[in-house]
Amino acid sequence: MKVALYLHIPFCDSKCGYCAFNSTTHQNHLKIPYMEALHKHLLHQIQALQISKFSSVYIGGGTPNVINSNFYKPIFDTLQPYLPKDTEINTEANPNSLTLQWLRDLKDFGINRLSLGVQSFFTKKLQFLERIHQSDCIPKAFDLIQKAGIENVSLDLIYGTPFCTKEILELELAQASQMPINHLSAYQLSIDEGSRFFLQNKQEREGEFEGFPSMGHFIKSHLESYGFYQYEVSNYSKGYRSKHNLSYWERKPYLGIGAGAVSCINNTRSYAQKDLKAYIQTCKENKEEKREILSPQDIELETLFLGFRSCVGVETKKITNQTNLKILLEENKVEKRGNTIYAKDYFLSDSLVLFLQD
């Protein structure tokens, strides 16, 4: 079996206000047992699923670069026989805690792509987002990445804050485009349940965002002028598209390893324990993960949602509501190329899916 692999690193130096991911701070004492559990989990799943190869690897978090590179070596030693030569191997990283030695070590292990969590080039916006890095460490981080010889680099930006005027965004996009990158991800800020922004004064927080409409189309237009072309609602390519993310959007099988990681293989979704201590104990005992078999309706909804928000599109035969599809074609909201339907505007993907599910 060939699958995409996700490795979850839940440790961070600090927790950003908007973050609802399964990450934690002040748990350094769990790093060693966690990485050992992660490795054991990986070994168990390779054997249980009879994995033949991994189509891509993505290390996410959390903040992968807060883990000493030594703890990644046994994991990559295990992975090596399952990685064809052209395998895309990604890691996320934050600018403030990046070191040249860590980058060189990870490159030696096989890393060939890095996603840097810049989020903003402006101090007030970084402070609002509760990021701990300063804007002046961003170019320094890129200098280290270049010295390490990692050529495929993506940059993350967040928009939709009270500081995101057109003037600020224009400056940020101009600065981002000057960095040595071939990919950019621009995410609309959302106040998700489980984040500190959500848990703090919810009503007051939501009020801060009134009157700040989405700047998605503005960003798309400006990025195109710099040679970055949208291929998913939040992702822009300048000659490089993330193979790992494309495999998700194409609904290919993926394996999640780590606390709270999710897998989907043969239309069965499984969930690892989210709590770090519980996850470590579960791995020691080789306990089964919680499983969910996707219904035909679940599969269709996911296919529509992922296809219309990206360049993947949706095969005509996979759309049940052909009557409403005909209406969307007539209204020029979608287009048909071959046997596949594509959204004309990825930002409208949710409303297209709702219409086809009506």
Rank of each mutant, 00 (worst) to 15 (best):
R241V: 11
V57Y: 01
N90W: 12
E289Y: 03
Q101W: 10
E335R: 05
E208S: 06
R241C: 14
S221A: 14
P95I: 10
P253M: 04
Y240C: 09
N267V: 10
Q146Y: 02
V66H: 00
G227N: 02
Q134N: 13
E289A: 04
V3R: 00
L43Q: 04
Q47D: 11
P95Y: 07
Q273K: 12
F355P: 03
K333G: 04
P95Q: 11
F163Y: 09
E315H: 14
L276E: 09
L294D: 03
Y187F: 06
E300R: 01
K238Y: 01
S234F: 10
T340V: 15
R291K: 14
I327L: 10
L304K: 05
K166W: 00
Y236W: 09
N339S: 13
K336S: 07
N201W: 05
E331M: 10
K140M: 15
F109N: 11
T99C: 12
I168V: 15
Y82F: 12
S214E: 07
S195W: 02
P33H: 13
Y254Q: 07
P180K: 06
R113C: 09
I46R: 01
Q322C: 03
A148H: 02
I51A: 02
K287Y: 05
S135D: 09
Q80T: 14
S154A: 14
T78M: 02
G211M: 01
L328P: 11
Y346G: 03
D143Y: 00
K2P: 09
E151H: 12
N266F: 00
S185C: 04
V233D: 05
K344C: 14
Q101Y: 13
T340Y: 00
T99H: 00
A272N: 15
S225I: 01
F355M: 10
V118D: 07
Q175K: 10
L173T: 11
Q203V: 11
L246S: 00
R131I: 15
E193C: 06
T99W: 00
I257D: 04
L144C: 04
Y6I: 08
P162R: 01
I46E: 02
N96Y: 05
I51D: 00
Y229L: 09
K274D: 04
Y6F: 09
G307Y: 02
T165P: 00
F142G: 03
S195N: 09
I299Q: 10
Q27K: 11
I132K: 01
